[in-house]
């Protein structure tokens, strides 16, 4: 029983960050119809930005976090302006190839600058864990979970409660009509890609100190982000949130009670099962484009 409780707690904490990863990816796909293969690289970028802010600028972890998020926002806007804007209107395959190339450049660039040896980000949290009855959890993970939930809430608020969000949703439903109604669709695309990138960078900066920071850390994260987005339905933010928690649950309990060797396979088994029953994912929206 204690073991199950501990697994459940681990699931919640892991699921929060998975959701954050999934939302960034699904946002960009839903609104821009771009499969963002730089998502993993942006996750890595966020972690290194936080590392640099701590190691080179001497900032503490709480300040390094917004620095990393802003850096992700800026890099996302740059990628959109330089790579995606000139390609607007070309087919999906072309964009996909360009994004794969950009992802490789970012990862190799990180390797070139920082080398392959992992770095650690220091945090001010105590080593002693938070004890809740028989189960325990590190303070750092509690903070990461809370920050992930806060970021998810902010993203929801942004999409559903602001003028920018309304313009984003309008562009999502029909870009041409939105443009005719006076929405600056070009700006909306840049903003969307920047926000999606900032969320990936935030996930990297949050998980950097939980794990370690190395150039290939984004590979596994990207695979999981894609899995979550497919599970939740392409373009659905609530789907990505719930998908993140389902993936974490499958991994945690699969490793705990079936076989730890197949931990990463568990999530994909669930995805295959879901796609067999509901090929559009759990929460696909009817008006989804593409």
């Amino acid at each position: 029983m204690t073991q199950a409780l501990q697994h459940l707690l681990n699931t919640l904490v892991l699921g929060g960050t998975y959701a954050l990863l999934g939302i960034g990816l699904t946002l960009i796909f839903g609104i821009m119809n771009v499969v963002n293969f730089t998502h993993g690289a942006l996750y890595t970028f966020g972690a290194y930005a936080a590392y640099l802010a701590c190691a080179a600028l001497g900032l503490d972890f709480f300040l390094a976090l917004p620095v990393a998020i802003l850096a992700g926002l800026a890099l996302g806007a740059l990628i959109e302006l330089v790579l995606l804007r000139p390609l607007r209107g070309s087919d999906m395959d072309t964009t996909m190839l360009v994004m794969i190339g950009a992802g490789i450049i970012l990862q190799s660039g990180t390797l070139w600058i920082f080398g392959g040896v992992a770095k650690a980000i220091p945090t001010p949290f105590p080593d002693a864990p938070l004890q809740i009855g028989p189960v325990s959890l590190s303070w750092l993970r509690v903070f990461v979970f809370a920050a992930a939930l806060a970021l998810i809430a902010v993203t929801y608020g942004l999409i559903n409660g602001t003028r920018l969000g309304r313009a984003m949703r309008a562009s999502f439903q029909d870009a041409d009509t939105a443009a005719l109604m006076g929405v600056n669709v070009g700006f909306i695309y840049t903003a969307t890609f920047a926000i999606g990138s900032a969320l990936a960078a935030a996930a990297g900066a949050l998980l950097g100190p939980v794990y370690v920071v190395f150039p290939q850390m984004g590979d596994l994260a990207a695979v999981k982000a894609f899995a979550i987005v497919i599970l939740g339905g392409l373009g659905s933010i609530s789907g990505a949130t719930i998908g993140g928690f389902i993936l974490a649950l499958a991994e945690e309990f699969g490793a705990g009670y079936v076989s730890s060797g197949y931990r990463d396979a568990m999530g994909f088994l669930i995805i295959i099962a879901v796609l067999l029953v509901k090929p559009t994912g759990l929460f696909a929206r009817a008006e989804r484009i593409g």
Partner: peptide
């Protein structure tokens, strides 16, 4: 654990 795995909490809880 997989060689690329970063989260071993499940194994450790067991």
């Amino acid at each position: 654990m997989d060689q690329a795995a970063q989260d071993m909490s499940a194994q450790l809880a067991k």
